[in-house]
Lab assay of single mutants.
Amino acid sequence: KTVKFDGLQFDFDNPEKALKFALEVAKQKGAEVHIHGDEIKIE
């Protein structure tokens, strides 16, 4: 899975870790997590 935000991109082999990371970043930024297939966007 790939996590994208602020023009940055982070690749994870483990989908659970990717989602956990995305949710943590979103919480800190006050943003929402959007999942599109293998891509997780924080907006």
Rank of each mutant, 00 (worst) to 15 (best):
I35D: 04
D13Y: 05
V3R: 01
F5R: 01
D13F: 05
F21E: 03
I35E: 04
H34Q: 08
D11W: 15
K20L: 12
E43V: 14
F12N: 00
E32I: 14
L19G: 00
N14C: 15
F5T: 00
D6G: 10
A22L: 05
G7P: 04
D6Y: 12
L23S: 05
L23G: 00
D38W: 11
D13W: 06
I35H: 06
G37S: 05
E24P: 00
G30N: 09
G37P: 06
T2G: 03
G30H: 08
F12K: 02
K20I: 10
E24Y: 12
Q28D: 08
D6L: 11
T2M: 06
D6K: 09
D38G: 10
Q28G: 06
H34A: 08
F12P: 00
E24R: 08
H34N: 06
K27D: 05
F5H: 02
V3Q: 03
E43D: 09
V33E: 01
V3D: 00
K17N: 11
K17M: 14
I40F: 07
G37L: 07
D11Y: 15
H36A: 09
Q9G: 04
P15M: 14
L23I: 10
V33G: 02
K29F: 15
F10E: 00
K17H: 12
A26R: 01
E16L: 10
E32W: 14
E32S: 13
K17I: 12
Q9N: 07
K17W: 11
V33T: 02
K17S: 13
V3K: 01
E43A: 10
P15H: 11
K20Y: 08
K17D: 15
D6N: 11
L8A: 05
A22N: 00
K17P: 01
A31Q: 08
V25D: 03
D13N: 06
G30P: 02
K27H: 09
F21R: 00
D38N: 12
H34P: 01
F12G: 02
D11V: 14
I40N: 00
F21H: 03
H36D: 12
V3E: 02
K41W: 15
F12Q: 01
L23P: 01
F10Q: 03
I42Q: 02
K4Y: 13
K41Q: 11
A31M: 14
E16T: 08
E43M: 13
I42N: 01
F5Y: 10
V33D: 03
E32V: 14
E24H: 07
F5G: 01
K41G: 04
K20F: 08
H36L: 11
K29G: 05
F12H: 00
T2P: 03
E43I: 14
N14A: 06
K4P: 02
K4G: 04
L23N: 06
G30Q: 07
I35R: 03
F10P: 00
K17T: 13
K1Y: 15
L23Q: 09
F12L: 03
H36V: 13
A26W: 03
I35V: 10
V3I: 04
A26H: 00
I40V: 04
E43K: 09
E16N: 06
I40R: 01
E24D: 07
H36F: 12
L23R: 08
V25E: 04
E43Q: 10
D38I: 08
P15E: 12
D11P: 07
E39S: 07
K1S: 11
E16S: 08
T2L: 07
K4S: 10
L19E: 02
L19N: 00
G7M: 06
E32H: 14
E39W: 10
G30L: 06
P15Y: 14
V33I: 12
K4W: 14
P15S: 11
F12R: 02
H34L: 11
F5K: 00
N14W: 02
A31K: 07
P15W: 15
A31L: 14
G7L: 06
E24Q: 10
G30C: 15
F12Y: 01
K27N: 08
F10W: 13
F12W: 03
D6S: 07
A26E: 03
K29T: 13
F12E: 03
E43Y: 14
H34M: 09
E16D: 10
V25H: 01
Q28F: 10
T2K: 06
F10R: 00
K27F: 11
F10Y: 10
N14I: 05
K41C: 15
I42K: 02
I42P: 02
D38M: 10
L8F: 10
H36R: 10
D13T: 08
K41A: 10
I35L: 08
D11H: 15
E39T: 12
P15D: 10
A26N: 01
G30T: 03
K41P: 00
A31E: 04
K4E: 04
V33Y: 07
G37C: 14
A22E: 02
H36G: 06
A18R: 00
K20P: 00
L8V: 07
V33M: 07
G37K: 07
A26I: 03
K20V: 07
F12V: 01
T2D: 01
K20D: 08
F5D: 00
Q9H: 08
A18H: 00
K29V: 14
N14K: 04
K17F: 10
Q28A: 12
F10K: 01
D11T: 14
F10T: 00
V3A: 03
I35N: 02
E24T: 07
A22I: 03
K4H: 11
K1E: 01
A18Q: 00
P15T: 11
I40Y: 09
K29D: 05
Q28W: 13
E43H: 10
D13K: 07
L19K: 03
L23F: 11
T2R: 09
G7R: 07
A18T: 00
K29H: 13
E16Y: 12
Q9K: 11
D38V: 08
I42M: 03
K4M: 12
I42W: 03
G30W: 07
A22F: 04
I42E: 02
K41M: 14
D11R: 13
I42S: 03
K41H: 15
G37M: 07
G7T: 05
F12A: 02
N14Y: 03
K20S: 09
D13Q: 07
A22P: 02
K4N: 06
N14L: 05
P15F: 15
Q28S: 11
K29M: 14
K27G: 08
H34V: 13
E16V: 10
K41Y: 15
L19A: 01
K1T: 14
K27E: 09
E39K: 04
E32Q: 14
K41V: 14
A31I: 07
D11Q: 13
A22K: 02
I40W: 04
E39A: 06
A26T: 02
I35C: 15
H36W: 10
D13V: 08
L8K: 11
F21S: 03
H34S: 10
K29W: 15
L8T: 05
K27V: 08
K17G: 09
A31S: 07
P15N: 08
F5N: 01
V3P: 01
I42H: 04
G7D: 05
P15C: 15
E24F: 11
D13I: 08
D11L: 13
A22V: 01
V33L: 11
N14S: 13
E43N: 08
G7H: 05
A31V: 08
V25C: 15
G37D: 08
K27M: 12
K17Q: 14
F10A: 01
E16I: 11
L8E: 05
E39L: 12
L8D: 03
E43R: 12
D38C: 15
D13C: 14
V3L: 04
I40E: 00
E39D: 07
H36C: 15
H34K: 11
K4V: 12
F12C: 11
G30R: 07
K29N: 11
D13E: 10
L8Y: 09
D11C: 15
N14M: 05
Q28T: 08
E32R: 13
K4C: 15
G30V: 05
K20M: 12
L19C: 15
V33C: 14
K17R: 10
L19F: 09
A18W: 10
L19P: 03
V33H: 02
A26L: 04
A22Q: 01
K4A: 07
L19D: 01
D13M: 08
H36P: 03
K4I: 13
D11E: 12
F10I: 07
K17L: 14
I40K: 02
D6C: 15
I35Q: 05
L23H: 08
P15R: 08
F21L: 04
E32K: 14
F21N: 02
L19I: 07
K1V: 15
N14Q: 05
V25Q: 05
P15K: 06
E24S: 09
F21G: 03
T2Y: 09
V25N: 02
D11G: 07
L23E: 07
K1N: 08
D11S: 13
G37Y: 06
A22D: 00
I40S: 02
E16G: 06
E16W: 13
L23C: 15
E24I: 09
Q28C: 15
G7E: 04
V25R: 00
I40T: 03
D13H: 05
V25T: 05
L19M: 12
E24W: 14
H34I: 13
E32N: 12
P15I: 14
E32D: 09
E16Q: 10
Q9S: 13
